[in-house]
Design a protein around this nucleic acid. Structure first.
Length: 288
DNA sequence: ACACAGGCCGAAT
DNA sequence: ATTCGGCCTGTG
């Protein structure tokens, strides 16, 4: 459970007891998740209605996990990645909050992203008491639509303030086109996301994967880039492979393509596994 | 001081 | 189609 919530895919679930219990909100629902034993969780909510169905979707329980593991276990490198990251689950997030989260994530860092999201919740979310704790829901699009760009700037969003402001007005333009299915019409939907000011390839892939559940996506950030250049572009000289600067190596576009070739329909899981593994064991990048 | 952080935009190849 | 400089802000 700690792997799932601390990998940096979802930013507003917190633990106060070193990973035994996690609290978070999804829309107006507060969720409490307790690790009962190695295999089972106890989950409570301020809204028990259809909670089981809700959680099955949230944790993507219908994904064939063992089949996924086999499929991405393509070589010794991935086997060691799996050894480190196995147990991690992809979370199916609420699309609006997910989109805001990843627009804010660019050229930032996880603590700062969390702080920015918390600013939005604290100022514009709904206060809910549950289990003797206070929670703030993530605001809806309507809650944020009237907020001036300057306010976002005052939260320290920097140039992302303009992106968020713009996104709030653009949001229905791609959401309401229900004729476009995020999974069936994957490429069209992804390009539509990228047309929004402030959303490029990486952020679009994250929103598409985590918010709209397209497991075929393989978001390429600097860490994935380092890993892929190190292990899956063998034509590089040793000197180039060891180069860790962002600008060196294959472009993000080619790396994403390669990731999708290698891992196919489970590319999204492979990406999160790799990300978790190198962030928690940087030594992976040194080893042969 | 200065590089860097889960990148993107716009202009110049 | 691809590459490169600049960018808000906080942290070490």
């Amino acid at each position: 459970m700690q792997k799932t919530f601390e990998v940096g895919q979802i930013f507003r679930f917190h633990s106060h007891d070193e990973g035994k219990t996690y609290y978070g909100t999804i829309k107006e629902r507060v969720i409490k998740i307790v690790q009962k034993d190695a295999k089972s969780l106890i989950i409570q909510s301020n809204n028990e209605k259809e909670l089981k169905t809700f959680l099955d979707e949230f944790f993507r329980v219908t994904d064939d996990y063992s089949s996924m593991i086999k499929h991405i276990s393509i070589d010794p490198v991935m086997k060691s990645v799996i050894e480190i990251a196995e147990g991690l689950r992809l979370i199916q997030q609420e699309p609006f909050e997910c989109s805001i989260s990843y627009i804010l994530s660019q050229n930032s860092n996880i603590p700062r992203i969390k702080h920015h999201l918390e600013q939005l919740a604290l100022n514009f979310g709904k206060k809910i008491e549950f289990d003797n704790r206070t929670f703030y829901t993530f605001p809806s699009r309507d809650d944020l639509l009237k907020i001036p760009e300057e306010t976002f700037r005052s939260f320290g969003f920097g140039y992302r303030a303009a992106y968020i402001y713009q996104f709030l007005h653009d949001y229905p333009n791609f959401l309401d086109s229900k004729s476009i299915d995020p999974i069936q019409d994957s490429e069209i939907f992804n390009l539509k996301l990228q047309k929004i000011h402030g959303i490029g390839q990486k952020v679009a892939d994250c929103i598409h994967l985590f918010g709209y559940g397209d497991l075929n996506r393989f978001p390429t950030d600097v860490w994935i880039k380092r890993f892929m250049n190190r292990f899956y572009f063998h034509e590089f000289s040793e000197n180039e492979k060891n180069e860790k600067s962002v600008r060196s190596g294959k472009s993000a576009k080619k790396i994403t393509q390669r990731g999708q070739e290698l891992f196919g329909k489970w590319a999204g899981y492979a990406q999160e596994f790799i990300y978790y593994a190198i962030r928690n064991n940087p030594h992976l990048l040194d080893s042969t």
